[in-house]
């Protein structure tokens, strides 16, 4: 199944695929962010794949990499029972096209990613903070956000950057 997905994607969006990886039988496809809506729409609508369930959308912060963030889309097909993982890379301050038009559930997930990482989603109907209050400053899940609130006396791994601040 994974080969088929990859083959079809390569046929249609050849220039959009940046990287392909497979780990423990879970395929991951890194794509250009400009194509993400079209690829998602295709994967959802194609009767052979019908990825109708967005099981998760989250972000990862890699402070040492150049496009700093990764947005991860975990797709699942309830009718066909298969999965695929898409990733797009985005730098600080840039925005990713929103997939709310493809799956409604992406709405809250994208708001969470915006709240926690500060990634903007273009075309999102209502991009506000979801978990933290409106007047909160900063994006807590970024790696350079202070990990602890109070200094812990017995911290054994203080010298492991960038996990502990101060």
């Amino acid at each position: 199944m994974h080969d088929l997905i990859l083959k079809k994607l390569k046929e249609r969006f050849a220039e959009s695929i940046l990287e392909v990886a497979e780990f423990r039988k879970e395929p991951t496809i890194v794509v250009r962010k400009e194509y993400i809506i079209r690829i998602c729409r295709f994967l959802k609508d194609d009767p052979e794949f019908s990825f109708n369930f967005l099981s998760d959308l989250c972000a990862v912060d890699w402070p040492e990499r150049k496009p700093r963030f990764e947005v991860v889309y975990n797709l699942y097909s309830i009718s066909k029972n298969h999965r695929v993982r898409l990733k797009v890379r985005v730098d600080d301050g840039e925005s990713v096209p929103s997939v709310t038009s493809v799956w409604s559930t992406a709405d809250w997930h994208e708001r969470e990613a915006f709240d926690m990482f500060g990634i903007k989603f273009e075309g999102h109907p209502d991009l506000r903070r979801i978990l933290m209050s409106e007047d909160w400053e900063g994006h807590p899940l970024r790696k350079d956000f202070p990990l602890t609130k109070e200094e812990v006396m017995f911290n054994y791994n203080k010298d492991r950057p960038p996990r502990i601040m101060k």
Partner: peptide, 12 residues
């Protein structure tokens, strides 16, 4: 005391 959650979200 804040318990195990010594982080940004929880009042200590």
């Amino acid at each position: 005391t804040g318990g195990v959650f010594n982080n940004y979200a929880i009042v200590q």
